[in-house]
């Protein structure tokens, strides 16, 4: 299955960055909560929140310096792999921002993260299926 790498613009994740929810509300990136994503998807029409479980974390074979994250996505349990820098934050349900290297995330973005681990359920989005 196809997978799009998360946004390449790191300023999204800089502490203090202003994020607009689908409801129009503005929040700082460090203040976002699980419900903000869920509610945004509900009102956005066309986007659906999926739970993506981290199945494996290892160094990328193809791209040194990156980390390969293996997910199973949604009800279909699709297997998706993406390569990201170790400092890239993911939003874990009920926990908040998490990365493979919270120290680097703090250095580069100023964003406080938990350590991303196998079994974590990350927020991801897909296109809403038309019934």
């Amino acid at each position: 299955p196809a997978a799009a790498a998360p946004g390449s613009n790191p300023s999204h994740f800089m502490k203090g960055a202003i994020i607009q929810l689908a409801t129009g509300e503005l929040k700082r990136v460090e203040d976002l909560q699980t419900q903000d994503f869920v509610r945004s998807a509900e009102v956005s029409g066309g986007l659906k929140i999926d739970s993506s479980m981290v199945m494996d974390i290892r160094s990328s074979q193809q791209r040194p310096g990156l980390v390969s994250l293996h997910f199973t996505v949604g009800e279909q349990q699709s297997k998706v792999t993406i390569d990201v820098p170790p400092e890239h934050p993911f939003f874990v349900f009920g926990q908040g921002w998490s990365s493979c290297s919270p120290e680097r995330t703090a250095q580069l973005y100023g964003l406080t993260c938990h350590l991303l681990q196998v079994g974590d359920m990350c927020v991801s989005i897909t296109l809403q299926q038309q019934q």
């Binding site: 299955p1 799009a4 994503f37 986007l47 996505v73 998706v80």
Partner: peptide, 25 residues
């Protein structure tokens, strides 16, 4: 005079990965 600088605003969906779950793996 200091011109006001616009603060960038990012959409919520730019923060989370788009992972295609339409095809079972």
């Amino acid at each position: 005079n200091v011109e006001p600088r616009s603060v960038p605003v990012f959409p919520w969906h730019s923060l989370v990965p788009f992972l295609d779950s339409s095809q079972p793996g």
